[in-house]
Amino acid sequence: MKFKTSGVCSRAIDFDVVDGKVVNVHFTGGCAGNTQGVAALIEGMDIDEAIKRMDGIKCGYKDTSCPDQLAKALKEYKKDNE
């Protein structure tokens, strides 16, 4: 799935979900080290656990963050695939 982000430095997030696990996460733009770290940590994680861990994380003064945007993307994926 490709998700267009909002309110963060990254422009988009691509990912797949296989057997309920989040895989192949790639951020376009953003802070390379942080987004690569988030992608590596989330690889193979259960989609619901990933949402639980990242939902609501803020970046500085912003109301969202790259991890929060990934949680939003995963929620959208779930809604569209239930």
Rank of each mutant, 00 (worst) to 15 (best):
M1E: 11
M1R: 08
M1Q: 11
S6H: 13
V8Q: 01
V8N: 01
C9P: 09
C9I: 09
C9H: 04
R11G: 15
R11E: 15
D14S: 14
D14Y: 14
D14M: 06
V17F: 09
V18G: 01
V18P: 01
V18W: 03
D19C: 00
D19Y: 02
V22H: 03
V22F: 01
V23P: 00
H26L: 11
F27T: 05
F27A: 03
G29S: 07
G29F: 08
G30I: 02
C31Y: 09
C31E: 13
C31A: 11
C31M: 10
N34A: 10
N34L: 05
T35N: 14
T35F: 03
Q36P: 00
L41A: 13
I42S: 06
I42C: 06
E43L: 02
E43F: 02
G44E: 06
D46P: 00
I47D: 02
I47T: 01
D48M: 04
E49T: 15
A50K: 02
A50G: 06
K52E: 15
K52W: 04
R53C: 07
M54V: 00
G56N: 12
G56Q: 11
G56Y: 09
I57E: 07
K58I: 12
C59F: 08
C59I: 02
C59H: 13
Y61D: 11
Y61N: 12
K62D: 11
K62G: 01
D63E: 15
D63C: 04
S65G: 11
S65D: 06
C66N: 13
P67W: 12
P67H: 11
D68F: 10
A71H: 08
K72A: 12
K75I: 09
K75P: 06
K75F: 04
K75Y: 05
K75C: 05
K75W: 05
K75R: 15
E76Y: 01
Y77S: 02
K78C: 05
E82I: 10
